[in-house]
């Protein structure tokens, strides 16, 4: 299992992401944004969190034109698995590998805290180890995480089981920290090989850090 973690100027979660996947038994390679190719035999590409290009213009607006992103887009279009976490999710949306757009949080504040998430769909690699309705405790850390999609797009997402995770309270009732449409926290594409979520599963892999619910999520890619 070879995981390629892309690193852009301003990315700051690549080491945590590498650590998490190595802990789960994967081989992990960091790939600089100026590279034009992914390592031979890459099984999964992870676009990690951070503030690529200083969030200038819009979050992830500039990262999508990095040389490595061309390779990532080709990889995804050929069925390769791609996971975007936080800024990585924003990149996938900006690159149109995932539908919708990301807006400033409704509160206008940067949110950094643990937040419960509800599993909405598990018929995909990412959440195959989780059960529908299960509540996971995962940290969120973002200022532009308010997911937007128009009504027709939202219907399509539900029809194809592309809504993966929603924000909720500890009991699983809807609770919306950032104003996302339907409190959506994570989605995938129609082919179910491209996944994006704002919360950080790689920060929840050890009990001592508050939760290890992230293990169950990331393990879906390993099995």
């Amino acid at each position: 299992m070879l995981v390629a973690v892309a690193v852009f100027p301003g990315t700051n979660c690549e080491i945590d992401t590498k650590y998490a996947f190595e802990k789960l038994g994967a081989e992990v390679v960091l790939v600089f944004h100026k590279e034009e190719k992914l390592p031979e035999g890459t099984d999964l590409v992870v676009l990690p969190g951070g503030f690529s290009y200083g969030d200038y213009l819009r979050s992830a607006a500039i990262a999508k034109f990095s040389p490595i992103m061309k390779a990532v887009i080709d990889f995804a279009n050929n069925g390769g698995k791609v996971l975007g976490i936080c800024n990585g999710f924003q990149m996938l949306v900006e690159a149109k590998l995932l539908p919708g757009a990301m807006k400033r949080n409704e509160s206008v504040h940067f949110i950094s805290k643990f937040h419960p998430l509800k599993v909405v769909a598990n018929d995909n690699f990412f959440l195959q180890k989780c059960t529908i309705g299960e509540v996971l405790n995962i940290p969120v850390a973002h200022g532009e995480g308010s997911y937007y999609i128009d009504e027709a797009g939202l219907k399509e997402l539900y029809a194809n089981h592309q809504v993966l995770l929603t924000y909720c309270d500890e009991k699983g009732n809807m609770q919306n920290p950032n104003g996302s449409i339907d409190a959506i926290a994570g989605i995938c594409n129609t082919k179910k090989n491209v996944f994006g979520l704002m919360p950080h599963p790689e920060r929840a892999i050890e009990e001592i850090l508050g939760s290890k619910d992230g293990v169950k999520m990331l393990q879906g890619f390993i099995a």
């Binding site: 500039i62 919708g100 757009a101 807006k103 937007y148």
Partner: peptide, 8 residues
């Protein structure tokens, strides 16, 4: 292509 995100 870049300056605006025409979705929103």
């Amino acid at each position: 292509e870049l300056l605006a995100n025409t979705v929103i």
